[in-house]
């Protein structure tokens, strides 16, 4: 499992709708904002890259020091972003695909307003379980 892994789902309006620190390292306050900064900045790159390929998984698009940002763009242009320090492309890809599935399930919930924050604890548990499995 990666020591640092920060997962965030960004809606098409660039609003983070789900955030989770899924790394095994102890959580630090400082890290949280740094991760946000890096992920936020990486959106600029994703913006360019997303239209150059038909694949949803963009692999690692950006890096900051030893932290790498991997991105998966859904058809609705929701971006699943993972900031990580391990190099495990296959695991990350599977992780993204499964989270995407979960996200679609969330979207199917008639009470969920697309683009709003995902507050479901079930979703959170599942994502963390996937992170443990793949990252």
């Amino acid at each position: 499992m990666a020591t640092t892994a920060s997962f965030v789902i960004v809606s098409r309006n660039d609003i983070p709708i789900y955030e989770a620190e899924v790394g095994s390292a102890a959580k630090k306050e400082e890290a949280a904002q740094q991760h946000q900064f890096i992920l936020h900045a990486a959106l600029d790159i994703v913006q360019d890259l997303a239209w150059t390929t038909s694949a949803m998984f963009l692999k690692s698009v950006d890096r900051f020091n030893d932290l790498v940002v991997s991105v998966y763009v859904t058809a609705g242009h929701t971006r699943l972003m993972l900031l990580h320090d391990s190099r495990n492309d296959d695991g990350i890809k599977s992780f993204f695909q499964e989270v995407h599935e979960l996200y679609i399930k969330t979207l199917l919930n008639p009470l969920y307003l697309p683009g709003s924050r995902i507050t479901s604890s079930h979703f959170d548990t599942k994502v963390r379980a996937l992170a443990r499995k793949y990252l």
Binding site: F37, H40, A41, A42, L43, D44, I45
Partner: peptide, 11 residues
């Protein structure tokens, strides 16, 4: 313009 990158680096 890559505004978010701009923001991050200036921070």
């Amino acid at each position: 313009p890559m505004l978010r990158k701009y923001g991050f680096h200036i921070i």
